[in-house]
């Protein structure tokens, strides 16, 4: 009952924020609104039992996306009028499409229906047998890393591709490396503020610790390589914001970041190739250990490390690249 109330309430919130976004023109307000939207969506995902997804949405929607958007928007983009209705042509088209789609939803199974076809076929085996076959309690991790491990390899490659893309797109810095005294336009208020520095610098080890916890606890609870990578990356970026990107680059240079990005994909891929050499199919972890579950455990541990490495390095690389574009 309480779930349903929360579900409906959050749906209303989502609709309100989405409508506000349709009518808003100011980029700053848009980014803030989309952050609120993400948090609402993430809470809704918890209500709908998708804790891993909610975790990711929180890290991505409210975290990375917002940071990236803030790196791109500028005060001079703010329009004179902050609010405008969409054109009537778009509204009409949207309404038309919406009514058509509404008719298409009528055969769908109801909310929470136990007999819905989606719960019958594949899901039965994942829920019923994954513990014997893989031996970890978080079924989402089992499916993600083993049954559909190849999709996850694809996912890591997508992140890597985005990292490569942003590297290619970063403007060539012809002025040479930035001087140590350069102000960080990314977050000017963070630098040289004793309060922030005192609190946040002490937070960084905790953030890193939390990241490692999420990395290695993903088998038993929500979390895993992706979320851990985002958290670790956030910890490193916080340091960059507090001192300066130049300082951070002296500790972790661009080259190492790029290397880590590529290495993560290679780790994942080579775990798969190891299966080939041991006489099994690509990404079959069962042959990696003495027993099937031991092999699956080892394989999942390794590939999650690869995911974490690629994601965290890509985060830092994104920060460097967007930083570069500001000079």
């Amino acid at each position: 009952m309480i779930n349903v109330v929360a579900d409906v309430g959050l749906l209303c919130l989502l609709l309100t924020v989405a409508l506000a976004i349709v009518c808003t023109r100011s980029p700053l307000s848009l980014v803030l609104l989309s952050g609120i939207y993400s948090i609402a969506l993430c809470t809704l995902f918890v209500i709908l039992d998708a804790v891993d997804v909610a975790f990711t949405e929180a890290a991505v929607g409210a975290g990375i996306s917002a940071i990236l958007f803030f790196a791109v928007i500028r005060p001079e983009d703010e329009p004179v009028t902050a609010f405008s209705w969409p054109s009537s042509r778009a509204i009409l088209l949207g309404l038309g499409v919406g009514v058509l789609l509404l008719a298409g939803t009528l055969d769908m199974p109801m909310y929470g229906d136990h007999l819905a076809p989606a719960h019958q076929h594949l899901a039965l085996r994942f829920l019923g047998q994954s513990f014997e076959e893989i031996g970890i309690p978080n079924v989402v991790t089992s499916v993600l890393a083993s049954y559909r491990g190849y999709d996850t390899l694809g996912e890591v490659v997508v992140i890597f591709t985005a990292g490569v893309a942003v590297l290619i797109l970063q403007p060539d810095n012809k002025k040479g490396p930035a001087k140590p005294g350069d102000r960080d336009r990314f977050a000017p208020e963070l630098m040289g503020n004793p309060v922030l520095k005192t609190v946040l610098l002490r937070m960084i080890p905790l953030v890193v610790l939390f990241g490692l916890y999420v990395q290695f606890h993903g088998d038993y609870g929500p979390g895993g390589g992706f979320q851990a990578g985002v958290i670790l990356g956030a910890g490193v970026i916080t340091y960059g914001l507090l001192s300066s990107a130049t300082r951070l680059k002296r500790i972790i240079s661009d080259k190492w970041v790029t290397l880590g990005m590529a290495l993560g994909v290679l780790v994942y891929g080579l775990v798969g190739v190891a299966g080939l050499f041991l006489g099994a199919n690509f990404l079959d972890y069962s042959v990696l250990g003495p027993t099937q579950t031991a092999g699956q455990h080892l394989g999942i541990l390794l590939i999650e490390l690869g995911v974490g490495l690629t994601v965290s390095c890509t985060m830092v690389s994104l920060y460097y690249c967007f930083k570069q574009g500001e000079s």
Binding site: T258, L270, V273
Partner: peptide, 22 residues
């Protein structure tokens, strides 16, 4: 026996390698 997968993972894994070589 592994040709179908090799068709895809050969370029997929050589790509990050290419990046590392620099």
């Amino acid at each position: 026996n592994h040709l179908p997968i090799l068709q895809v993972i050969v370029p997929l894994l050589i790509a990050p390698f290419c990046m590392i070589l620099g």
